[in-house]
Design a binder for these strands. Structure first.
Lengths: 204, 204
DNA sequence: CGTGTTCTTGACCAGTTGGTCAAAAAACGA
DNA sequence: TCGTTTTTTGACCAACTGGTCAAGAACACG
């Protein structure tokens, strides 16, 4: 697997299977807790075959994380300084909540990495995340200054959106248990709750 | 180490050192990612000596978790149905935030366990956590019914308190990076922000 | 077809893992 | 003090870890 760009059908199929399986395993076990055997088994490949497509366990993890960062920050990028402030923020909350519902593994992968001190992510965090958050924090600060939303600390507002939405993915086991069984879907009520919360918080 | 109750000075000192070291390691690496060698080194003991005090790696982890649950739920137990509702809840928020500040390792240990699907905790979760949360959710529901706080979903309110406060421990690396450097203490501003948030959310 | 390339795998390796054990070293108690 | 108990450890083990390699199987294509 020295070639980079030209992917045959087989290459595409297998790298996808590997990354999907690795997402399963890494998101549950963390980097150190995951094993190549688990990933290989989940991908339906042999271990040497994994290492034909990726040079190392770490390479799989890094690939996963860098793909994730883009996806993960996308909703924040869409925060429009010219839109209606409260509506913009509520839309952001909802998008993030949908991501927790539809991509819980990605959320847990990210959480695991941060919990461990972000050893493989601190670079990206400073280069991709920080500038974006700074930029959006300024927009929020401008909204506050203009009296269009209530007086809130921009960064902490962003933290609260992240924590409240990602909680439903990362602590999913706990949430479902406390709401009385795995059959019930927590998300419709979560959406209502968060919408009310941020409406009351932000409306001037 | 067959005797259970009668702890000599040495036993107390060493089991404490082991549990403290294990908390460090488990909270960062998760159960599978942690090794007995890491724990032993951090505790200043040899690996066989660890296993003189605890029968297995899992036993150390289980001991930590069961000790933690008690501590962790303590602030919620203090929620007083006869107190002033908003004040009671704000006090709970503040206690939880203080725990994130003063016991971040415990918070991360818990987060790690839940992230992994709570394999070693699902029992305790159902037996200790669920009844307590059910009880306190009823108190909150009664406050809502009496019009003493705004109309919020009790369980989701509790989730939001947990997620918002624990975020400052679990995602500490990210928080500090985005606030501009590890030197600044995020907690004073976090306290102000959360107090305002829950005041606006709960005041009828 | 045939042949060159891509893909797959069984066997293997060195380092690490959780855990054992017997014997030595400390600490204790009379 | 000396014998007993508690504590500590070096040597060791089988299972597992990430990773290698050479050889075979499947595929592409003229």
């Amino acid at each position: 697997m020295t070639m980079r760009q030209p992917k045959t059908r087989i290459q595409k199929k297998n790298t996808d299977a590997i990354l999907d399986a690795a997402l399963d395993v890494f998101s549950r076990q963390g980097f150190r807790g995951a094993t190549l055997d688990q990933i290989a088994k989940a991908a339906g490949l042999s271990k040497p075959n994994l290492l034909y497509y990726f040079p190392s366990k770490e390479a799989i993890h890094v690939t996963l994380l860098s793909q994730l960062m883009d996806l993960w920050l996308d909703p924040l990028r869409h925060l429009d300084p010219d839109g209606d402030p409260v509506k913009e923020l509520l839309t952001y909350v909802q998008r993030k909540l949908e991501m927790s519902r539809d991509m819980p593994r990605e959320s847990r992968l990210f959480a695991n990495e941060i919990l461990q001190g972000a050893p493989r992510l601190s670079g990206t965090l400073g280069e991709a995340l920080k500038p974006l958050v700074d930029e959006k924090a300024e927009i929020i600060a401008a909204w506050v200054a203009a009296g269009k939303i209530a007086d809130v600390h921009p960064q902490h507002l962003i933290f609260s959106i992240w924590s409240l939405t990602q909680h439903y993915a990362d602590f999913d086991v706990q949430v479902r248990m406390l709401l009385g069984g795995p059959e019930a879907d927590p998300f419709p009520e979560a959406e209502r709750y968060l919408k009310a919360l941020f409406t009351r918080l932000l409306t001037p």
